[in-house]
């Protein structure tokens, strides 16, 4: 759901690029926050809490941790302030996420 016409604003958008959300191909504009690109594609659940509750966009300024996702295998990326790049692999994060190189069985859950 993009705003196409606005009485006051003109939106300067980057190149249209391809990215992946949970393996599914999507399109967004390079440089916009990942969460904005996902929102425009109708994706509203970004993260599940440790207790399994869905979490979405909330503060949009990188303060609240509601939008943490796995981006190119890195967990806990604040997607509301991280710019979208072509071919990014973006995944819904469950709980605290796992650092690359860390064995999941080593984690206390």
């Amino acid at each position: 759901m993009r705003i196409s016409e606005h009485p006051i604003l003109k939106f300067r958008r980057g190149h249209r690029v391809r990215f992946y959300f949970d393996g599914q191909e999507m399109k967004g504009f390079e440089g916009e926050p990942i969460a904005a690109a996902l929102h425009a594609e109708g994706v509203r659940v970004l993260h599940y809490s440790e207790a399994g509750r869905p979490r979405g966009f909330f503060c949009a300024i990188g303060n609240c941790s509601s939008c943490l996702m796995m981006v190119d295998s890195q967990p806990n990326v604040r997607t509301c302030i991280t710019p979208l790049r072509a071919e990014m692999d973006i995944r819904t994060q469950r709980g605290r996420g796992v650092l690359s190189g860390e064995q999941s069985e080593d984690r206390e859950s």
Partner: peptide
């Protein structure tokens, strides 16, 4: 109040006025 769709007013403004994305219907 933690459901996706419950947003701060600043976040709604950012999404809509800075990034040109509708926050919802």
């Amino acid at each position: 109040n933690d459901l996706p769709g419950v947003y701060g007013a600043g976040a709604v403004q950012t999404l809509m006025n800075v990034h040109g994305v509708k926050p919802g219907r």
